[in-house]
Write a protein that binds this DNA or RNA. Sequence first.
DNA 1: ACATGCCGTTCAGCTTGTTGTCAGGAAACA
DNA 2: TGTTTCCTGACAACAAGCTGAACGGCATGT
Lengths: 219, 219
Amino acid sequence: MRVLLIEDDTVLGAAVRDQIKAEAHSVDWVTRLDEAGDHIAAASYDLVLLDLMLPDGRGLPFLRELRKHGDVTPVIILTALDQISDRIDGLNAGADDYMVKPFDLCELSARLAAVARRYTGNPNPLVNIGDLEVDLAARSVRRQGKLLPLTAREWVLFEGFVQHPGQILSKTQLEERLYAFDTEIESNTIEVHISRLRKKLGREKIDTVRGMGYRLGEA
Amino acid sequence: MRVLLIEDDTVLGAAVRDQIKAEAHSVDWVTRLDEAGDHIAAASYDLVLLDLMLPDGRGLPFLRELRKHGDVTPVIILTALDQISDRIDGLNAGADDYMVKPFDLCELSARLAAVARRYTGNPNPLVNIGDLEVDLAARSVRRQGKLLPLTAREWVLFEGFVQHPGQILSKTQLEERLYAFDTEIESNTIEVHISRLRKKLGREKIDTVRGMGYRLGEA
DNA sequence: ACATGCCGTTCAGCTTGTTGTCAGGAAACA
DNA sequence: TGTTTCCTGACAACAAGCTGAACGGCATGT
């Protein structure tokens, strides 16, 4: 399921994003309404989470505009406690539901599940890397439909490359991905994992940038 | 389709009844839970519309009781705007969907259609997993027509895999399915249940992804 | 009340896959 | 050519997962 999160609070936004991800949906998170408009125009979502108080304009007119154009994507609005009238207006403007901040993540899960139950089916976006199909939400990699089994470590590394295409990731950065801040490591572990990844996915998927790190293959 | 409507508001109730009738379904409308219990015991319905606020007792315990007795009739709960927690509890208690009062009659139609699609003669409810036939509505699994008896926990787990094919479900997620957010557990219960599931359904139906979780088998 | 059977959980011992390390070789660069 | 950096096969240690067995709870039937 694809979810668009429109929320300017970075702390709350990150928490919500992570929770949705944890339920294996894919999330696009934007902090401004104009961005949101671009995203909605470009992709089709199964659910929109809309904060009503945003820096660049109120969410209500945005929602009305959306509905006016015939968009029927389920929208759940997020409001603060003291904005009761907003809530009513929101529902009248075409929102399907609302949540009062601060809300429990369990509550979010329940709403997600409710939407997912009647959701029409935009599959999670697939990223194509050469002949590979990567599903970040499901944590799977396929070649010609065939599942390529990656281990936990291998997946964490590869995910890093897919999320930052074209960017060089140093060994240090990769180590930090693998070992959250604590364990020091002193050997060529990263090299070994890269080697194993290449063996499974194809040599050309990961480029070596000598002295700097690694990068997702161009072709 | 046969619908049981449990709603004490005479105005809303009549409107809903008429709408359902207009869609060529048959409706039994009751205003109290004890009546509802009698009806359910006597006849078999395809859908229950349950108002959570009734004069003779709360609807939630009623719903839980129903599910506890193995009744899998789809239930859509009706709640007022200010009863958010009820809604969440309702979904956790086994409701399939919810609608917020006051709701549009078009919305009702849409939900009815969704339920009808999902639960009546459509090819949809039968899922094929390898040599297995899974009926999500009836909670049954068959191999060559022969029923494979699953226990409650086993079914909950397996249902999770069937509903999220291709996705990795972590042990934590599976635990949350089994113990709705309350009970902590500390042992290899999940592993044991998985083991028993595999013994009954076939080893290859559930893949282990070490360090990450389990996933429905591909082939 | 007692016996019976089923189910869920726990434990212990076993099996298996992952992963960090190393070492020798290959490639890039000066 | 020498030096640095990286690659990769092999391997042992360990953690993760598997599963038979046993225990206790709950419900049902006698």
